[in-house]
């Protein structure tokens, strides 16, 4: 039942020392006094049996604990390595939201994100991010031009040049 061994030493005062050994090493010492009227052998046997039962229960508990720890470790590793959903470059998105017309900025960002997701599936996140930047850079000039026109900077600049040249 168990890989425990016991050594029993009886003293002159009637007490008994029970040494519990595991692989020849003492792991527990109990000093007991056999109650009067109890059969010596039966009492000692019951005592050692209860130690053995506790030891087996503890061993089983340790085994289950280790099993659970291993499972937790595996799950943590899975969570850590789980792919995060790909997202387009934030800086590029900010650029678009800054210079695109208010009416269509969110729609354009949505379109760019939709294409980004398609590109992620087609050629991976790294390449998709590169393509996203290309899209944004291509769009930057027309957007910037529209932004300047909306702000009236161009008219301001022309008026300034005209006033300086006296036209």
């Amino acid at each position: 039942m168990t890989d425990l061994k016991w050594e029993i030493e009886e003293f002159s005062d009637g007490s008994v020392e029970i040494k519990t050994l595991l692989r020849d090493e003492i792991v527990r010492r109990d000093l007991i006094r056999i109650p009067p009227g109890a059969g010596r052998d039966h009492y000692l046997h019951e005592f050692m049996y209860s130690i053995g039962r506790d030891y087996e229960a503890r061993k089983e508990f340790q085994r289950k604990k280790l099993e659970l720890q291993a499972r937790i470790h595996d799950l943590k590793a899975k969570i850590d390595t789980r792919e995060k959903p790909a997202s387009p470059p934030i800086l590029a998105e900010m650029l678009i939201s800054l210079i695109a017309p208010e009416k269509t900025a969110q729609v354009q960002l949505g379109d760019l994100q939709e294409m980004f997701q398609k590109n992620v599936e087609r050629c991976g996140e790294r390449e998709a991010r590169r393509m996203y930047w290309i899209q944004v850079t291509d769009s930057a000039l027309p957007l910037l031009w529209g932004w300047i026109k909306r702000l009236g900077l161009f008219t301001f600049f022309v008026d300034y040049v005209r006033s300086k040249l006296g036209l």
Binding site: A100, P101, T104, V107, Q108, D111, L112, Q135, D138, S139, A140, P142, L143, G146
Partner: peptide, 9 residues
């Protein structure tokens, strides 16, 4: 490829 911004403009 026609830039998205050009299409929207």
């Amino acid at each position: 490829a026609v830039p998205m911004a050009t299409i929207y403009a």
